[in-house]
Nucleic acid binder design. Structure first.
Lengths: 108, 108
DNA sequence: TGAACATATGAACAAATGCTCATATATGGA
DNA sequence: TCCATATATGAGCATTTGTTCATATGTTCA
């Protein structure tokens, strides 16, 4: 039943809406970099400010900031200010789901 | 409960196995191109030979072949020969699941 | 065996990407 | 206001990536 919905959804997509694939590819592009995946996984555990992420993952502050910008632009993370820091957190649970999907495939 | 497993799995991954993120990112890289997503979606419907895929998606035979090579190398598709044609199909249902995950996020 | 069809592949090129370095912006406290 | 801390951003650069074009490999059938 759920499978059927999936297939017909994809069929419609292929025949009628080629743009959807760009969107889909663009979404996966975000997860297609190990720095960003690490950041997203880190935020899966708890919200963190930039310097915490940087330290936790051993990635340059600048690099982290650049990647966070991408993540925020694509609405996967949201921010709030706390004093001098800016705290990043996941926008919703989709990220968790998508990472889990991929993880399931890796682990086999 | 399922959420808990997810989180602890990710925590272990971050602290102990940085290589896992490369694998995860590499997996998403495969989905991060619209041609490959289209091909995978097409194969979601039914197995197809190269020229069918090429025609169905309006992508050059050469381009399709190059992408199929990537998909096969990463074990997402398998092949069998039928006369002059080589027929491609999905290796398992993980592809469906992953595409569905992404689709869910797009549709919102 | 030779022609026609089907697929694979290598080289070349343009576009996209992620990092670093330097610097700008913003906040809090002395 | 001045300084230290925190974050963002632009330019430059090296690497990766996807396509095209030409051609090679492989299969069927006359």
């Amino acid at each position: 039943m759920e499978q059927e919905n999936s297939i017909s959804r994809i069929q419609n997509a292929i025949t009628r809406n080629s743009q959807l694939f760009e969107q889909l590819a663009d979404l996966y592009k975000i997860f297609a970099d190990s720095s960003r995946v690490k950041i997203l996984c880190a935020l899966t555990q708890s919200e963190m400010c930039v310097s915490e992420i940087s330290e936790f993952l051993s990635i340059t502050q600048s690099a982290v900031s650049h990647q966070l910008r991408i993540l925020k632009t694509s609405n996967l993370v949201k921010t709030r200010r706390a004093g001098k820091s800016i705290i990043y957190s996941l926008t919703d649970d989709h990220v968790r789901t998508i990472i889990d999907c991929g993880m399931d495939h890796i682990v086999e």
